[in-house]
């Protein structure tokens, strides 16, 4: 009886620790999303969306670049089909990312994987991918759920604030805060490159492919998909045992 309570206490403690660690890992995303979400809220309300509409878009879509594009296209008077197709193209990269993410989460139950897949963005994906060990822990899904929810609340809350209050962050500051997510991506990449320089090569090749396609008029969405798929293929030859379990 007592032993059982102790065991229960232990699982509760470890669950709480996972939730806390997930929130800590998600905090840079929280910080990075906030100014962008507020800017989106401002722009979307200028585009003619009501507060509830622009917040609903954040709740249901949860994809920064696509929402900016969507708001701009609504303002420009584009049609439903045009906007939906453009969104599909821009967000198709999430399919490739999700395939990688789900493969890493293999030890988790289908239900957990399915639920977590809804919260996949560029940022939650990259941060989660660099924390692969939690997937093998009992209740590890809590770590990823917490990371995603922290990001999600920042995105949805920031959108609402932007729509409600308008430009609450001075222009120059919010402009400068646009570097935040890029800095986070860099901060995620550098430690991996220090451990394995070939990872840096994969990233640089991806940058160059992306750049080449973009300057040749390929849309951002497809350029990122093509660059990600092609450059990561180098991993087949480069990442021997280092990344395999």
């Amino acid at each position: 009886m007592e032993a059982k309570t102790l065991e229960e206490n232990c699982t509760t403690a470890s669950k709480l620790a996972l939730i806390r660690d997930g929130a800590i890992a998600g905090f840079p995303i929280f910080l990075g999303y906030l100014p962008i979400a507020i800017t989106y809220g401002v722009l979307a309300s200028q585009a003619g969306l009501s507060i509830s509409e622009l917040t609903l878009m954040s709740v249901l879509v949860f994809a920064g670049a696509a929402q900016f594009m969507g708001a701009q296209m609504i303002m420009a008077g584009s049609g439903l089909l045009e906007i939906v197709v453009a969104t599909f193209v821009l967000n198709f990269r999430h399919f490739v990312m999700s395939l990688s993410f789900m493969n890493r989460l293999k030890p988790l139950s289908f239900k957990s994987k399915f639920a977590l897949s809804f919260g996949l963005t560029d940022e939650t994906f990259t941060v989660s991918s660099l924390h692969p060990n939690e997937a093998r822990m009992p209740h590890g899904a809590l770590f990823y759920a917490s990371l995603i929810l922290v990001s999600y609340f920042s995105w949805v809350g920031g959108s609402f604030l932007g729509g409600m209050l308008g430009e609450i962050i001075p222009d120059r500051l919010s402009q400068s805060m646009g570097i935040a997510l890029y800095a986070m991506f860099i901060g995620l990449l550098v430690p991996s490159v220090k451990k394995e320089w070939r990872i840096g090569l994969i990233a640089v090749v991806s940058m160059l492919i992306n750049y080449l396609f973009m300057i040749n008029g390929v849309s951002d969405g497809w350029a990122i998909v093509i660059a990600t798929v092609l450059a990561s293929f180098l991993g087949v030859f480069f990442l021997k045992e280092a990344e395999d379990e």
């Binding site: 991918s129 400068s176 798929v229 990561s232």
Partner: peptide, 29 residues
């Protein structure tokens, strides 16, 4: 998935990071 495909998928985050950073970072201002 065969092993080579697992390696491919494991490299996706790094390739995605590269593509997400550049050239987008030049559009901050």
């Amino acid at each position: 998935f065969p092993n080579w495909m697992n390696r491919w998928l494991n490299a996706v985050p790094y390739a995605a990071l590269g593509a997400l950073i550049f050239p987008g970072i030049m559009n901050v201002i």
